[in-house]
Computed example of a mutant assay.
Amino acid sequence: MRRRSVMVRSAVVAMIGSLSAALASCSQPAAPAAAHTPASIAPLPERGAAGQTADADLSALERCIAAGQCQRVHTETFSNATIEIYQQSSELPAVHVVTTYADGQPTVWSLKEEHAASFLGLTCGLANCLLDVVVGPETRASIDMRMVSHALTGRIEGAAVGPALSTQAVDLDADGVLDLVSAKHLVQSDGTELFYYQTYLNDDRQLTTTGCTAPSTDATPPTALQTRTCP
């Protein structure tokens, strides 16, 4: 009987070992190719007509400004609209974009909560603006911002996020819409640091990577879309 119990226990241990190995195999990371897929951030909800922005959003921002928790960090003035950007300092930082149209009430569009952000810069062209922020812990993102029905709309595009030394909004294909140039670097085995630039095409508000410049110790930002394979 004792020998039979030992055999049963041995069989159970063997079964557990096989099951553990199977589970470990199922939990292995995806194929290496997937590691090159750009990090992604879920798109933000769009803000369409001006009436879609609740008065409560503007009132909450006014209280934040009065309390000294929200500071204006940027102002952009157009012929028929003004954009003011406020940085909220809190446990989860927030960026509030206030758009005031010539014949309308101010509207508020915010990056907060799961999209908690810190403002870096805003560059505007003929057809759009690119808002540069840090979202979450340390994820840099560029957001295409456009005026639609008297309100500013925005969307975070996955292709424009990820590690970068800096980003620059440039119209690389001369279509009047700002594209994106991202500066990156490589550290070789001997410790030499090389720099290169990655370009993104803004195609119908989708920031899609097109290629990279050749790594160099003294890289120059490109003035056209690149097609060379990225490191």
Rank of each mutant, 00 (worst) to 15 (best):
M1F: 05
V6P: 01
R9K: 07
S10V: 11
A11C: 09
S18F: 12
A22I: 02
S25C: 09
P29S: 12
A31Y: 12
P32E: 12
A33S: 12
A33T: 13
A35C: 05
A35G: 06
H36C: 06
P38H: 04
P38C: 02
A39D: 10
A39Y: 06
P45L: 03
R47D: 01
G48V: 08
A49I: 12
A50G: 01
A54K: 15
D55R: 14
S59N: 15
C64E: 09
A66S: 11
Q71R: 11
T77D: 04
T77M: 02
A81W: 07
T82K: 13
I83F: 07
S89V: 07
E91C: 00
P93N: 01
H96Y: 12
V98W: 06
T100N: 00
G104M: 02
S110F: 03
L111F: 15
E113C: 05
H115L: 14
F119H: 04
G121D: 10
L122D: 01
T123G: 06
T123M: 08
A127S: 12
P137W: 11
A141E: 12
D144H: 06
M147R: 13
H150C: 08
H150Q: 14
A151K: 10
A151S: 15
L152W: 14
A159H: 10
G162I: 05
P163N: 09
L165V: 09
D173C: 08
G176E: 08
L180F: 09
S182H: 02
H185R: 15
V187K: 13
D190N: 14
E193L: 04
Q198W: 01
Y200G: 00
N202Q: 01
N202P: 03
D203C: 02
D204S: 13
Q206V: 11
T208E: 08
T210Q: 07
C212V: 03
P215A: 06
P215Y: 08
T217W: 00
P222V: 04
A224I: 14
R228S: 14
T229H: 08
